[in-house]
Amino acid sequence: MEENRFADKVVVITGGGSGIGAAAAYRFAREGATVIIAGRTGSTLEAAVAAAPTGSKISTRVADVSDESAVTALIKEVTEAYGRLDVLVNNAGIGAPGTVEHTDTATWRRVFAVDADGVFFASRAALPHLRRVGGCIVNVGSVSGLGGDWGLAAYNAAKGALVNLTNAMALDHGHEGVRVNAVHPSLTRTPMAAPLFDNAEALAGFRRRIPMQRPAEPAEVADVIAFLAGPDARFVNGAHIPVDGGLSASSGQPRMF
């Protein structure tokens, strides 16, 4: 790992209190960044800071990404406090089981409010500041946005929206020096996925489908986020990188031999 690659850089990570968000915060901090993690629960954010590597420059802001005014205020506060914004990681996300027929309107709206609206609100507020410094956005999507799942209609639709929003922003803002890319994990060992890890049958099914035969660790996704935000990816724009152990390499057909 190259040391201090993000020295003097300011990074905002939504959903930064646990899982992939916290792992990304630690990765950026180890490389010299000043990191601001945002989330809905102050105690969760503080616990993430307490677990950070020694010497990390990580601070917290309580904000719900589905609240337009809160997200706008978050970006304004950060840029006023630190004088710049170099990287926005749109990581906050939620899921909910259900087919279209069995998803109520409130659940549908809530999933979209966090997984799609939150990305829109944060990106819109951040873009003028990113433009000034040649910064970038990394969106955390899901393989569920690249293809469908059984019984996850709202999550599939919202993460699918994130995919094409990433494409649109890459087209609209690449010429302004702002790169926009996305990572798409499969099953990752996070609090959001905890119910799956408690389900032996579901976990076995994932192991059968993932060529590497295991879920991802949050740090493995964070490493790809850091790559996309760093100088080695300076000509990468509009990219979608599955971080899925080879899951999406399959045609979808069952194993035949």
Rank of each mutant, 00 (worst) to 15 (best):
A116H: 13
V119S: 12
G98V: 02
G83S: 09
I94E: 06
R109W: 03
A81R: 14
T79F: 11
F120G: 00
N90T: 08
A126N: 07
V78W: 08
A126V: 03
Y82F: 04
A125V: 14
T99F: 12
T103N: 04
D117R: 13
A96G: 07
A81H: 08
P97M: 08
V100Q: 03
S123R: 01
G98N: 05
N91T: 05
V111Q: 09
D115Y: 11
D117C: 11
T103R: 03
T79C: 12
G98E: 06
A106L: 13
N90M: 07
V78A: 06
T105E: 13
W108P: 04
S123A: 10
V100N: 07
G95Q: 12
D104W: 01
D115I: 10
D117V: 08
G93F: 04
G118P: 08
G95M: 10
F121R: 12
N90C: 06
V89N: 14
E101F: 11
F112I: 01
V111D: 09
A96K: 10
G95C: 03
E101C: 05
F112K: 02
I94F: 05
G98T: 02
I94N: 04
G83M: 09
A113R: 03
L88M: 10
D86V: 01
T99H: 12
N90Y: 08
K76T: 15
G83Y: 08
K76F: 02
T103W: 04
A113N: 08
L88E: 04
T99K: 13
A122S: 15
Y82I: 00
E80K: 06
F120M: 08
V87I: 15
R124A: 13
G95Y: 06
D117H: 14
F112W: 02
V89T: 09
Y82Q: 05
R110W: 00
T79S: 12
E101I: 04
A106K: 15
R110A: 05
D115E: 09
G118W: 05
F121A: 14
G93M: 10
A81N: 05
T99W: 03
E80A: 06
T99R: 11
H102N: 14
R84D: 02
A81K: 14
A106N: 11
R124S: 14
A122Q: 09
A106H: 11
Y82R: 07
A126P: 08
Y82M: 01
L85Q: 12
V100Y: 10
R109N: 14
K76L: 00
F121Y: 15
E101K: 13
V87C: 13
N91H: 08
V114L: 03
I94S: 07
A126Q: 12
F121K: 13
V100L: 15
G93D: 07
L88H: 04
V114C: 11
V114Q: 07
E80G: 01
A106F: 08
T103E: 01
V114F: 03
T79E: 15
R84I: 05
T105N: 10
R110P: 00
D115S: 07
A81L: 04
E101V: 12
A116S: 13
N90S: 07
L88I: 02
V78C: 04
D86Q: 06
R84A: 08
